[in-house]
Simulated assay, not measured.
Amino acid sequence: MTDSDGIHLDGSHSTGVDRVANVRLSTEYGEFLAVGYLDRNLGHEQIALVYGDVEGEGVLTRLHSECLTGDAFGSRHCECGDQLSAALTAIASEGRGVLVYLRGHEGRGIGLLAKLRAMQLQAEGLDTVEANLALGLPADARDYRVAADMLHDLGVRSVRLLSNNPDKREALLRYGIDIAEQVPLLIPPREENLAYLLAKRERFGHHLPHLDPVVAP
C-alpha cells in the first residue's frame, strides 16, 4: 500500500518513471552519464545527468526547469542558461552529483508559446507573475514529482540542493527526498533581467540576497 505521495508504508517509494537508456555523454563540463526516463503519468521524456557515484546521502543536485530561450539561445531575459552552466560546473568540480533536466517546465509550466506571449506583456510593463495571470494561466504550474521519482530510481536519498527556490525544497521533501543543505545558485544580474529577478524574489520568495546592493538607493 502507498499513501497519496507514492510512499509505501514500509518507507520505500514507488515511482512513475521508466528508465529507458543509460549512455556516457562527453560535455564541455566533463563526462556525465545521461539517464533517460519516460514519465508514465504525463508522457514526457526526461533526462538526468549523473556525475560519479550518487547513491546515498548529500548528493549535490540541481532540478533545472527547461528553458529553451535561456538554455539554448542564451537569452538575457532570465538567468537560466547561466544557472545551467554553473550547476554543471559545480557538479563536475564536486566529483559527484545530479542535474535533473525537467522537460514540460517551459515558462514555469505554461509552455513555450505562452511564455513568449508573457514576455511580450512583460515588455509592456507587467511583471512575470502578472503576465502569466493576464493570460489566464497559473503563475507557476510546475510539479516536481517526476524529479523526485528520478532521484529515487538513482538511489539518491538526500541532496544538497542547488537552488534559490523554496518550492523545489518543499516539493522534494514532500516526495520523500531529504534536504541536507540548500546551496545558493546566484548569478550576477544584468540590466535586462534585473526586474525579472526582483519579481522572483518578491513574488515567489526566491533567496536572492545578491540583488540588495544592485537595488539599494
Rank of each mutant, 00 (worst) to 15 (best):
V59D: 04
Q46R: 06
R40D: 09
E55S: 14
A21R: 01
G36H: 10
G36L: 08
N41I: 07
Q46C: 09
D39K: 01
E31S: 13
D39I: 03
E55P: 00
V59S: 04
Y29C: 08
Y51A: 10
T27H: 07
G16V: 00
V54T: 10
Y37W: 08
N22S: 15
V23C: 13
A48V: 07
E55T: 12
E55R: 14
V20K: 07
Q46A: 13
Q46N: 13
Y37Q: 04
D39S: 07
G30E: 10
L25H: 12
N22G: 12
V35K: 04
L60K: 01
A21G: 01
I47T: 14
A48E: 12
A48G: 12
D18I: 02
H44I: 13
R62S: 11
V23Q: 15
Y37C: 07
G52K: 05
T15A: 06
G16A: 03
E28F: 07
E55N: 07
G36C: 10
S26T: 14
V50Q: 05
A48N: 10
S14D: 13
E57Q: 11
G16D: 00
V35Y: 05
N22K: 11
G58E: 07
S14I: 06
Q46W: 06
S26Y: 06
Y37M: 01
H44G: 12
G52N: 07
V20P: 00
G52Y: 04
R62K: 08
R62L: 10
L38I: 08
N41C: 09
I47C: 13
A34Q: 03
R62Q: 11
L33E: 15
V20M: 11
G52S: 09
F32Y: 13
V54W: 05
T15Q: 04
I47P: 00
V20G: 06
V50N: 03
E45A: 15
E57V: 00
H44Q: 15
R62N: 11
V20E: 13
E31L: 04
D39Q: 06
T15L: 01
V50S: 03
G43E: 10
N22A: 14
R62G: 12
D18A: 03
D53H: 02
G58T: 01
V54E: 06
A34E: 08
D53P: 00
G52D: 08
E28N: 10
L25K: 12
